[in-house]
Amino acid sequence: MGAELKDQLYGFFINADKEGAVNLLEHFAEANGYEEAVKEILEPALAEFGDHWTKVGDISLAHGYIVGKIAEEILTKAADEKVKNSSESNEIKGKAIMGNIEDDFHSLGRKLVATFLKASGWEVHDLGNDVPAEEFISKALEVEASVIGVSAMMYTTAVNIKKVRMLLDERNLSGKIKLAVGGAIFRLRPSLLEEVGGDGTVGNALQAPELFTRLSNSIK
């Protein structure tokens, strides 16, 4: 049954049908709880959607936005349900700092990444747009984050990410804090990852949790 519902939900994602998707998840959650809805239906459908986004390439930013909204709504309810039913605090996968690099103001991609990171259990500290390199580092040290995620849409602003790499190296933090980079320009120019000194990048927001987890696990 879970597989069938997952397929239905995936269909709602592809058709950009938020109402249909939320209704399906709510209906399942009424009988089985939100945590089960997330585990049995939402997460597998998100994984398939992310795979489709990466491999087929016919998914629009609007699709990603809608799916992000669906995930946000259901995961918030799942978190509330968990708090209500348990005295244990939710397990955190890791702590991440997010922001658009200095001079960059294209926030949508960053917000989507933050949504999907939170959805998969990350504690995200979003610093917003136009963030100087120093601020990424000081916040990461303050909250003991393992990954800094920096977003830039254009080449002209992406090169400012080099400053984050430089500061991490200067302060001997490169083995302790990993640098994830992303934004449209990294898809257009794959060599930019190396140019700015990033530790990793992904093609879409849904792949971000896997990248952040991998980078975090690589810290010795």
Partner: peptide, 12 residues
């Protein structure tokens, strides 16, 4: 409105 503000308006 910002990219996300306009996207949200068109979609929803």
């Amino acid at each position: 409105m910002g990219l996300d503000g306009w996207l949200d308006t068109i979609i929803f």
